[in-house]
């Protein structure tokens, strides 16, 4: 099991099996919808994990990129007559470029100062989206055109399940392979000690920036997917609450663990659906579960499990 959690092909194979088997167990399309939400959120969380887990930098405004992706998918077809696919790609480019230019000054800040700067950036983007209603529909949001691929309209819950799962597999594969590249090894050095990494000649600033851009592009693509899946966008997607939710997914699942991000996303998407039966007590339970899991699994769910298994051996 530990080897399974460490071998990237085993991880991908296991993920593929879960994805392939799950739909056969679902009693209704509603479960497909929830699972698709998990895949999309996990995609964004994996990207953020590259920034937080690998490069060790926090972002409390990451939903801004999610929002840019979502609104690109909405605005492209509606105002500019672009196909949805192109809008997704353009959104990812805009997010990447924005991350590149904003990241330069912001990433010089450290720790909590970085947190507040990214938070401020997120608030700004959300504010622009809420205010420029001519383009974005304002606080109530706007509808999004359905995705068509070669004239085939992707609308059914099944189609979205497979599409989001395919994106997740590719996203996880890229993130897992990062470890073997020079960038990935540099991340490792950076994570252990920023000063030491600098001493051995790693361009730390450029490295952090690269992680920031990667995370932004992941979030943007996830945002576009969610927008097209829902057929609707609104500014909440870019808001502070959503940023916090994304960070919680990453930390709860386990910093630096790709599987962890998927588990973290699953927990945070499924929990509100499961807890809704408690009605008034829902938030009380949600907060309690988050506290208890972080206190007892301080490194996150997946690292905790693999540690337990290692100890059992």
């Amino acid at each position: 099991m530990t080897t399974l959690l460490n071998n990237r092909y085993a991880i991908l194979a296991a993920l593929a099996v879960v994805i392939a088997v799950l739909p056969f167990t679902f009693p209704s399309n509603y479960y497909l919808r929830v699972a698709s939400l998990v895949w999309v959120s996990a995609f964004a969380a994996i990207g953020l994990n590259v920034l937080m887990g690998k490069a060790g930098q926090v972002s409390l405004g990451h939903a801004a990129f999610f929002g840019i992706g979502a609104y690109s998918a909405a605005i492209g077809p509606a105002h500019l007559g672009l196909p949805s696919w192109a809008s997704l790609a353009i959104g990812a480019c805009i997010s990447g470029l924005l991350a590149y230019f904003v990241g330069r000054p912001i990433l010089r800040l450290k720790g909590h100062y970085l947190a507040i700067a990214t938070l401020g950036f997120g608030v700004l983007i959300a504010l622009v989206i809420t205010t420029e209603s001519r383009w974005t529909g304002g606080p109530d949001g706007m509808p999004v055109a359905k995705l068509t691929v070669f004239g085939w309209r992707i609308g059914t819950a099944y189609a979205w399940y497979w599409l989001s799962a395919a994106f997740l597999l590719v996203g996880a594969w890229i993130a897992l392979n990062l470890d073997d590249t020079p960038t990935g090894r540099a991340f490792l050095a950076l994570h252990d000690s920023e000063v030491a990494a600098r001493v051995v000649g790693i361009d730390v600033a450029a490295l952090k920036l690269r992680a920031f851009v990667i995370a932004a592009v992941y979030a943007s693509i996830a945002g576009s997917l969610l927008a097209m899946m829902n057929g609707f966008v609104n500014p909440d997607l870019a808001g502070f609450q959503h940023s916090v939710e994304l960070v919680t997914m990453v930390v709860l699942g386990g910093l630096g663990s790709i599987v962890g991000s998927i588990v973290g996303a699953a927990v945070l998407v499924v929990l509100p659906q499961a807890l809704t039966v408690f009605q008034e007590y829902e938030n009380l339970m949600l907060g309690f579960i988050i506290i208890v899991s972080m206190v007892f699994m301080r490194d996150g769910i997946v690292p905790m499990i693999s540690k337990l298994i290692a100890r059992a051996r």
């Binding site: 009693p27 509603y30 929830v34 109530d140 949001g141 509808p143 609104n234 909440d236 659906q273």
Partner: peptide, 30 residues
């Protein structure tokens, strides 16, 4: 609004309701 959208699917696909009375805000309704 995103949560509302998921609950809408849940009402339709899982609970199989006849009709819905709800949607407190314009954002969630849309």
């Amino acid at each position: 609004a995103n949560k509302a959208r998921t609950f809408a699917t849940r009402l339709i696909e899982d609970d199989k309701v006849v009709a819905m009375v709800g949607g407190s805000t314009t954002g969630t309704t849309m």
